[in-house]
Design a binder for these strands. Structure first.
Length: 375
DNA sequence: CAAACCGGGATCTGCCATTTAA
DNA sequence: TTAAATGGCAGATCCCGGTTTG
């Protein structure tokens, strides 16, 4: 038996009564990578009884399983008192084991703070079970409180605050400094484009894109610079874009935004369009940059094949939002009725299903009229 | 009346790397 | 030293309908 294994046995034997640091073993030997501290057996048992997936917990936060003081029972009772069932509790602990290190007092306080922004306990629980990490990752309740204060002082509505915490709950666990720096950054963007009301600009961007707070300023900056630079936007154009649908593409991964933009540029060029058309298209509907380049090309090809002119798509790019199958089907339906896209436009393509069917209905009855009494 | 404009809803967590605390 | 706390990242549309306009 090797010395390391022997040491492990000794450690294991002594664990319940003595801490590692107090053992008469040289620190170096104790910290050897071959002898990690043992897990807390009674804790493992408790967690098993709760139905926790130990393998998952171990993979995520191994250190928690070695702790001697934990509060899994308190956490379970707490969550159950808020309406969680056994399975939910187990899932939460399995996905974020550190949750069991929070005291009951801490949990009460944190829940109270979150609850201020929600409408019911059930809502809090819903977000918490969706994203345990957002709720438990930070143990700093004071920071949480300051965060809520800070977000409210921005002048965002109670409704936006609610949307913020339900859609991007991580925002609340960010440090106030991080959130503040994002707001400062947004304001600086506004100023750099000659905007006169930086606070309102920041509010608008946040309201239109609830995910900005869980992105880095570096990413947002890179995207702002890419769009304004590559498209040669004027200050007014940039301000307008980022305060409308453009806000939504600011948090996309920078590499993919760059890829999609370049691909669209190339594609439009191949269809005989220049920079002006590219710019106009994106100002008309910047969300086309969400569509992956491959898919976007397929959609454009599909529209071109359907006899639609590029210029029409440049003017009304929202049609690219729809699935290829949907576009193809609609083109087919309209062709069957002899619809003239050059004359009647392509707006009909980007209507809701219900409205499109109603439109088809009208077109076909009009056609029947014509057949009966041709003028 | 129909078309056009416009915004919103779902969902967006779970993992990794680095820094900080104990 | 280990574990906790924190910041950051990838992922890659589709559709609906209220309101305004013509």
């Amino acid at each position: 038996m090797s010395r390391v294994m022997l040491q492990r046995q000794i450690l294991h034997f002594l664990r319940p009564v003595t801490r590692c640091v107090s053992l008469p073993v040289p620190p170096r030997a104790c910290s050897s990578k071959h002898a990690p501290p043992p897990e807390n057996e009674s804790l493992l048992e408790n967690l098993s009884i709760l139905g926790v997936d130990l393998a998952s917990a171990r993979r995520r936060q191994p250190g928690v399983l070695r702790r001697h003081l934990t509060n899994e029972q308190g956490l379970a009772h707490f969550l159950q008192s808020k309406g969680a069932d056994q399975e939910t509790v187990a899932s939460i602990i399995s996905r974020f084991p550190r949750s069991i290190t929070r005291s009951c007092e801490h949990l009460e306080e944190r829940w109270r703070l979150w609850r201020n922004v929600f409408r019911s306990d059930a809502e809090v629980l819903g977000v918490l079970s969706r994203s345990p990490e957002s709720f438990f990752r930070s143990s700093d309740n004071k920071n949480l409180e300051e965060n809520i204060c800070f977000l409210m002082t921005l002048g965002i509505t109670a409704r936006d605050l609610h949307r913020l915490v339900t859609t991007a709950p991580r925002t609340f666990s960010n440090s106030v400094e991080l959130n503040r720096s994002m707001v400062e950054f947004l304001k600086s963007v506004c100023v750099s484009f000659g905007g006169k009301d930086p606070e309102r600009f920041a509010r608008t961007v946040i309201s239109r894109n609830l995910y900005v707070f869980i992105r880095s300023t570096g990413r947002i900056r890179a995207n702002v610079e890419l769009l304004s630079g590559s498209l040669r936007l004027s200050h007014a154009e940039a301000l307008a874009l980022f305060q409308s649908h453009g806000a939504q593409i600011l948090d996309v991964s920078h590499e993919s935004l760059k890829r999609n933009l370049e691909s669209l540029r190339t594609k439009l060029r191949s269809l005989g369009c220049g920079e002006d058309e590219l710019k106009r298209m994106i100002l008309n509907y910047s969300l086309v940059l969400f569509v992956s380049s491959e898919r976007l090309n397929q959609k454009l090809d599909c529209l071109m094949d359907g006899g639609i002119h590029v210029q029409q798509v440049v003017q009304k790019p929202k049609v690219l939002d729809f699935s290829i199958d949907c576009i193809r089907q609609r083109l087919h339906d309209l062709h069957g009725l002899g619809y003239d896209f050059q004359k009647s436009g392509i707006a009909v393509l980007d209507s809701s299903r219900k409205r499109f069917l109603a439109k088809l209905e009208r077109l076909s009855s009009a056609e029947n009229e014509d057949a009966r009494s041709p003028s």
